[in-house]
Amino acid sequence: MSTINITQFVRKNILELQPYISFRDVNEFNNPVLMDANESPFGEFNRYPDSTHKKIRTQISELKNISSEKIAVGNGSDELIDLIIKIFCEPKKDSVLMMNPSFAMYGFYASINENSVLKLQLDENFEIQKEDFLNITKENHPKIFFLCSPNNPTGNAIEDIEFYIKNFNGIVVVDEAYIEFSDKKSAIELLEKYPNLIVLQTFSKAWGMAGARVGIAYASEEIIRLIYTVKAPYNVNSLSLNLASESLKNINEFKNNLQDILSERVWLNEEFKNIQCIKKVFPTDANFFLIEFKDAENVFFKLLENEILTSKRFPQIPNCIRINVGKREENKQLINVLKTI
């Protein structure tokens, strides 16, 4: 296990903060009369949600076989990304490192916090060149490295993730929003070994709850305490917490839906082989494909004419469009239009 002292990376003013604590959430009562929070006595959702997310953290703990004290719940992974930057990065001083291309919001939230954003260019297979990584970290000393795997928008899982955690003098955030679609192991199993590691997962993708905005962070107890110190008191609403909790009780439904998506991914991949306008389909470990077309702009607007919405990745990735896996009827619509181009 690494002996990194996490405190050295935390902003001094954050270390001095005292967290907001809801008295009712940290004490046990049998049948309390709630007159402490200026709530209305009427309404189905008249009470504030649990600020400590005890129920859902316990459920996730049992599912993932990890202590609930090493789990934080956020208003989507976006909130967690924002909080992590605020905890560790001094505005106008520290920098963050991210892959390029990758999920744009890492740079977005860093810029809001007035931190510079360093971009690690991926190779032609969308992998990290280890020498480039070592050079950029040695020269610039970034405070946080955001490593998205499987990566968005490329779809591939990054190889040898442990190398980057071990060789980074700062906080490594492995964003596993698409991990359920991959046969690669989660970085969660590396948490005991590396106290500078944070793993993000979400209910938005495989769990089918993008509208609920529920993200999860796994980290050392020390880092989780910091997240609960700086987060808003009631950051995840009752409706979303209840929905996520119910989903965790229906694991079979989750597994069936996941298998359907994986089966459709295989079906689509086969269908793409017969599409003349496609130049290359990149390997994917996610619920989407990055596809290089002969004329991506033409394809994008032809699909749009048929009200099929896709994600334009060019000019950053030349002639490429990102297309996620849908239901069979949606996937057939896509293929039918592509065959006419």
Rank of each mutant, 00 (worst) to 15 (best):
N27C: 13
L17R: 09
S116R: 14
V73S: 08
I275C: 06
H53V: 00
I188Q: 15
L15K: 12
L34D: 08
M98Q: 04
N135K: 09
Y194N: 05
N31K: 09
K119I: 00
N113P: 09
L15G: 13
I112W: 12
N152T: 14
Y164T: 00
E192R: 06
I84L: 08
S116H: 15
D36Y: 10
I275G: 05
E264Y: 04
L248D: 05
V174Y: 01
F314M: 15
E114V: 03
K92G: 06
G74D: 06
K302Q: 07
A296P: 12
R24P: 09
N274P: 08
I21A: 04
V117C: 05
S311M: 13
D94E: 06
N156R: 05
I144W: 01
G155W: 09
V96Q: 01
R57K: 13
Y109G: 02
F282G: 01
S61Y: 11
E176N: 02
S40F: 02
T137G: 02
K55T: 12
F29I: 07
L268G: 10
G74L: 10
V281F: 04
P195M: 03
I66L: 05
P153V: 00
K231T: 01
I216V: 12
K279R: 11
P91W: 07
L63Q: 11
Y106W: 15
A296V: 00
G155R: 13
T52D: 14
S111Q: 04
E131N: 14
N306L: 10
P150N: 07
E246I: 13
F133S: 01
F272S: 03
F300M: 02
Y48F: 13
V214F: 08
G155P: 10
F168Y: 02
L243Y: 05
N324M: 11
Q18H: 14
L134Y: 00
E222D: 15
S95T: 05
T154P: 00
I66S: 01
I323L: 02
V73K: 10
E79D: 15
Q201Y: 07
I161L: 08
K119D: 00
K64Y: 07
G215T: 11
V96D: 02
Q276L: 12
F181T: 00
E330S: 14
T58D: 09
V33W: 09
P19D: 07
F23C: 11
D183V: 12
T154E: 00
R47A: 10
P153H: 08
G170N: 04
K12C: 14
P283Q: 06
G74A: 11
I6Y: 03
L147R: 02
